[in-house]
Amino acid sequence: MAVVFEKTKALTDAKLHYCPGCAHGIVHRLVAEVLEEMGEVENTIACVPVGCAVFANNYFNFDAIQCAHGRAPATATGIKRVHPDKVVMTYQGDGDLASIGTCEIVHAAARGEKITTIFINNGIYGMTGGQMAPTTLPGMKATTAKAGRDPKINGNPLRVSEMLATLTGPAYIERVSVSTPAQVTAAKKAIRKAFEIQKQGLGFTFIEVVSSCPTNWGLTPVKAMEFVREKMIPYYPLGVFKDITAEEGK
């Protein structure tokens, strides 16, 4: 029988534990496909976070390490400095990266560490059960903001891509989503570009993926994808925020 589709070899056969409608599965596959297509699976080391993606090291079929909450960019720095010829990535959620790990991500970016960060922004703490994240939208409900996030009480969300784009160290920053097939295709292109820039040694690369959490949002998978398009993306607009290859006319 002819093989018409084959799962990427850059993912293991372990069954994903993610909820239906969660974007992690899609993004894992995009990362894996890109690395396989680039021929870098044997050359890649992933730093995985604390949060829903804590088991990503069981899914990625390459070297990986589980990091302390928010510290993946620091751990990746240590790895990349020892193995500058390897592809080193962090895969982090918004609680991990934009709350407890804000310091580490900002400084890894500022240093221009030659790593790639995949940042999953779904506006909520998933693994711990729906608490408010630094990226929770105003008015969005969370178990620690039951009436909805009130900026007067809970402060305002962080737009991480925009913030990091003000720094000199990053080489490439793009915000993508995976709520439509077209977005998935565009996201894969962005992820590939980030890894390519890392391979060229040009600096820090960062792909933010506006994602979904149907379970903690209390929505069906389809409604969650609608929420991404109707509520999340207007607050977190998609696009390229920094691209030194374009600036240099390459």
């Binding site: 730093c47 390490i65 510290r71 620091a74 240590g78 310091c103 400084h107």
Partner: peptide
């Protein structure tokens, strides 16, 4: 060799975690 002045002690020890995992004396 490589010297990195980290942004904090917290970051420094997590860089150590990475470098140690990568097989280096750190």
């Amino acid at each position: 060799g490589t010297f990195v002045q980290a942004e904090s002690e917290v970051a420094a020890i997590n860089m150590v975690y990475g470098a140690a995992a990568a097989g280096a004396r750190v």
